[in-house]
Computed example of a mutant assay.
Amino acid sequence: MQPTEFKQTPSKYQPLIEVDDTTRATFYRKTYTHVALAVLLFIVLETMLLRIDPLVELMLSLAQGWTWLLVLGGFMFATSYAEKLAHTTHDKTTQYGALFLFVLAEAIIFVPLVYIALFYGEMEYFSTINQAAIMTLALFTGLSAVVLLTKKDFSFLRSFLAIGFVIAIGAIIAGMIFGFNLGLVFSAGMVVLAAGTILYQTSQLVHKYDTDQYVGASLGLFASLMLLFWYVLSIFMGRD
């Protein structure tokens, strides 16, 4: 998924970079509270989806070959639509609806990976998921802190990230055509790419958003967090 490009909004909403420290701190608190709530909602939805056997079987069957590209295409369409809604309106009902749609799409796309981690291995896979989650949160926190403390503008990463995602999609398609496993090296590269999106999205949070767009900001950060978690978990599973 490519990084979200901020769209300018009506002037009655103050750019975050122009407000005082108290207002900015309030915005940050609201944004990261919504990220935490999105993660909690993801866990709840994922737990519910994994109990629906027909859905699990369907997602596992679709996770093979070209059908997975169709799933990814549907996922990208749904998430892009949700991002557009969240970033182009100040209507809170629409923003929260977009965030819910995005979290639901993430929960669905994660079903095969989490199911394999939980049920195809032994009990140590519970530990694997926990370890991957802790590593993901640590990386996310560290990268976010770098931007929030230094206030460095990482907007220049957008072009590099876009190129990186195009290359990644090409590698996935090539793997399906020629039947090779992308392996740990690809997952490590995607972790680097996900780290770049976190820097970029947090930079957008500091420099580009308006004071009313904390829901849209949280959606962008949640998207980067889940991309990072996917590939960190993939690495931990491949290691065992």
Rank of each mutant, 00 (worst) to 15 (best):
I108E: 14
A162D: 01
G189L: 07
I173G: 11
A133I: 06
S203I: 14
F180W: 13
L205I: 08
I167L: 15
G220A: 05
M176T: 12
I109T: 01
L137G: 10
A195E: 09
F119N: 04
E122V: 00
V146D: 09
A194Y: 02
V185A: 14
I198P: 05
V191R: 04
Q131H: 10
S218Y: 08
G121A: 10
Y200R: 11
A162S: 13
A217Q: 11
L143G: 02
S127Y: 04
F180N: 07
G216D: 07
F100H: 06
Q213P: 09
F102M: 11
L104Q: 07
K151L: 04
L221A: 11
F110K: 06
A133H: 02
A107H: 06
S234P: 00
L219A: 14
L225C: 12
G216Y: 06
L233H: 02
F126K: 00
L148P: 02
A174M: 15
K92G: 00
L233M: 03
V185R: 07
A145L: 11
I129V: 15
H207A: 08
S218C: 12
T197Y: 02
V114R: 08
D210W: 00
M176N: 11
T136K: 10
I167G: 07
K92I: 10
N181H: 06
F156Q: 07
F119T: 03
F126N: 00
H207E: 03
D153F: 07
M176H: 03
A195Y: 05
E122T: 05
D210G: 05
V103C: 12
Q204F: 05
L157W: 06
Y115D: 13
I198Y: 03
P112S: 01
A138S: 02
G142M: 08
L221D: 10
A195N: 10
A145H: 03
A171Y: 09
L99D: 00
V147E: 13
F100D: 01
L143F: 02
L101P: 03
T211E: 15
F186L: 09
Y115E: 12
L149W: 13
M135G: 10
Q204P: 00
I198M: 07
G179L: 10
L233T: 02
A174C: 12
E122N: 10
T202S: 09
G164H: 13
A217F: 07
A168S: 15
G121F: 13
K92H: 04
P112H: 02
Y115L: 04
A194M: 03
L101D: 07
A138R: 00
A223N: 14
F154R: 01
T136V: 09
L101H: 03
Y231Q: 12
T93L: 11
A132Q: 08
F102G: 01
N181Y: 04
S187V: 05
L227K: 11
L221G: 10
A133Y: 08
I167D: 05
A145D: 01
L233V: 01
A188C: 13
G175T: 08
I109Q: 02
L149S: 10
V166G: 05
Y200I: 05
I163H: 01
K152D: 00
V215R: 09
V206A: 09
L182D: 03
V185D: 11
F126T: 00
T94Q: 12
I198A: 05
E124G: 06
A223V: 00
F186C: 11
P112R: 02
V114L: 13
G196W: 06
L148S: 03
